[in-house]
Amino acid sequence: MERIVPRDKWLYNDRGMMKWMGWLLSDHSAFMEGEKNKENLQPILPQMGVVDISDRLQQAWESADYVSIQLNVLNHDNFVPELVGVVVGFDAGRIYLQMDSGETKLLRVEEIRSVIPVREDKWWNDDK
């Protein structure tokens, strides 16, 4: 049984879900802060030499392979998230990294801490 009372006969003006918005917002903010902290925690990779970094970047550029690059940049005492993409160019100690989103990042080789080749899983190798 449903009891529907016309709005003009209400004893007070009910705000509906507005009264819960503070609770929802604070929980959502706490969740988002936790996710941000998880995102920021990057494993610290060993510092590579400039020659090793240059060799790996050149090899990735020649074969158009994906690489994961960790920068020597700290944000709130944690390393910034790794950049994954394809090396599409270089010029005077700078490289151009194209991300999956289509965005191209310009990085200086001096900023790079580590370069790791990323193995691409080909759809034709999938055994599912």
Rank of each mutant, 00 (worst) to 15 (best):
Y66M: 08
R56F: 13
D100Y: 02
G89C: 03
L107Y: 01
H76M: 11
I112F: 08
L83Y: 09
M18D: 15
S68R: 15
V118R: 06
I95M: 06
E39I: 14
W61R: 05
D121I: 12
L11I: 09
G22W: 00
G34S: 12
E103I: 10
V50D: 04
Q47F: 07
W10Q: 09
E39S: 05
S68F: 00
E2H: 10
A92E: 02
V84E: 09
S63Y: 10
V88E: 08
G34A: 07
N125Q: 12
N75T: 11
Q98S: 08
A30I: 13
G34Y: 02
N37W: 08
P81W: 06
L97W: 03
I53A: 00
H28Y: 15
Y66R: 06
E110R: 06
I95C: 05
Y66P: 00
H76R: 12
E120A: 12
V80M: 06
E2S: 15
L71M: 08
I116V: 12
L45R: 13
G16L: 07
A60I: 03
H76S: 13
L25K: 15
L11M: 10
M21K: 08
I44V: 15
N13R: 08
R94T: 04
V67K: 02
I44A: 03
L45S: 13
P43E: 11
V87G: 00
W23K: 10
Q59F: 09
P46T: 02
D55M: 10
R3K: 07
L83P: 00
L57R: 03
Y66L: 15
G89L: 04
F31S: 11
H76E: 15
I4D: 12
S54M: 04
H76L: 12
A60M: 04
K128G: 07
E120G: 09
V84G: 00
K36A: 12
P46C: 03
V50M: 07
W23T: 09
R113T: 03
V84N: 03
Y12N: 05
F90V: 01
K19V: 14
L41W: 03
E39R: 14
A64T: 01
D27E: 04
Q47M: 11
G102I: 10
S63N: 14
W23Y: 13
E62I: 03
V118L: 14
K9T: 07
P117H: 09
L41T: 11
E82S: 05
A92C: 02
R3Y: 01
D121S: 06
L57G: 01
L71T: 02
D52W: 02
I69Y: 09
E35H: 04
P46S: 01
G93L: 03
P43C: 00
E2C: 03
S54N: 05
L107V: 01
H28K: 10
W20Q: 10
W20L: 15
D126L: 10
